[in-house]
Nucleic acid binder design. Sequence first.
RNA 1: GCGACUGUAGCUCAGUUGGUUAGAGCGCCGGUUUGUGGUACCGGAGGUCGCGGGUUCGAACCCCGUCAGUCGCCCCA
Length: 416
Amino acid sequence: MSRIETPRPIRGTQDIFGPDAEAFAHVVECFERVRKLYRFRRIEMPVFEKTEVFSRSLGETTDVVSKEMYSFDDRGGESLTLRPEFTAGIARAFITDGWQQYAPLKVATHGPLFRYERPQKGRYRQFHQIDAEVIGAAEPQADVELLVMADQLLKELGIADGVTLNLNTLGDGASREAWRSALIAYFRQHHGDLSEESQERLEKNPLRILDSKDPRDRPFVADAPQIDDFLSEEARDFFAQVTAGLDAAGVAWSRNPALVRGLDYYRHTAFEFITDRLGAQGTVLGGGRYDGLMESLGGAPTPAVGWAAGIERLAMLVQGDGQGGGELPADVIVVVENDAVMLDGVGAAAQLRRAGLSVDMIASGSPRKRFDKAVKLGAKAILALNPGDAGTQHRLRAEPDFAAVVDSALAGYRWQ
RNA sequence: GCGACUGUAGCUCAGUUGGUUAGAGCGCCGGUUUGUGGUACCGGAGGUCGCGGGUUCGAACCCCGUCAGUCGCCCCA
């Protein structure tokens, strides 16, 4: 007999079950509710796109495109990629589907994303995000609205404690480029004293030195040129309006001049809500303004801003707080203590459910142990069924108030 | 791609310096007890000790390799 080897799950995928699954659903439900309060319109997007959608938008420069996307050729020989983010696909749809007519357009979505990375805490190859974007709005009020929405979401999820909104500006294109050049010149002077990783970054992605975790880099980061010294008048004013809007809306924020984005299309506002409770993967929600993206996809210049947040990470925090997301006990558990009254179990459960009560039925295993099983499940009410001389006997155990609810739900049921 | 740690029953884990037939709790199945009842007891099923090689009279245990998981680094759209 040859043994059948059970296929293992793919690295970095997860089968979400039990309290984890409830917390996950809770996060999505909360997001759906809040996004409606801010009048963001729901969209559904394809899970895969032509590879160019992502490679063009990401610029083909970094490891990101070459090593960290799930790409494959379809039967026609065309390279396709499982979406590693929402933004590029939404930008593509904005262009190809004529959504310009709705600008400024506020949209929201959620679903799975795929990145070919080594899994670690709160980081998977298939993961899930909620996402919100405002496309075609150049005003700082769009940034503010997104941030206020994010803040409200985290508060309604009950996880805002220990979470800080880190805020920065990258300036407009010219500011950003001037700052970048100054940073390179500065770090070149200290090249030999930087960590090995940062010496690498100096060539490939100098802005990233600013958020290096290596203590050797810290003194140089502290004295590095600040974006503020390179901001144009317009960029400075834009950022001031964003912070003023946050203050007006009562959203706490913290300036973090080391918060950067590696990709060139980011302009002005960049932000991350960061928690101190998730180890190395502390960013819980992040985003920024990407005014340069639409052009890289061949569209007309279109200002846009958005954010995304990992559902798994939010769900972990929700559970850590011991609230929202637990599996709720049943309203009623119907216990068929003798198989002779099985059909009344089926019938009573159906009637109770039609009356809007959540019901589980226990009708298997040792009859004598069925009641104890029900007790252990901790329902609000237990309805035990047994055969009697005058037909099925039913006994209800519940608090008096809830017993009345169950009784009225059962009213009119014809026991066999 | 790199590093550290961990792989024993469905789950959580013991397992002595390398020594007979690998254990417990929980869960599951059956039975006895109780009988408006969350009790107690008895029994049962369930294990390629991640996999492959090596050392040894003898390996869950020591060595090498490999695979998987966890966490961290790199990267982070």
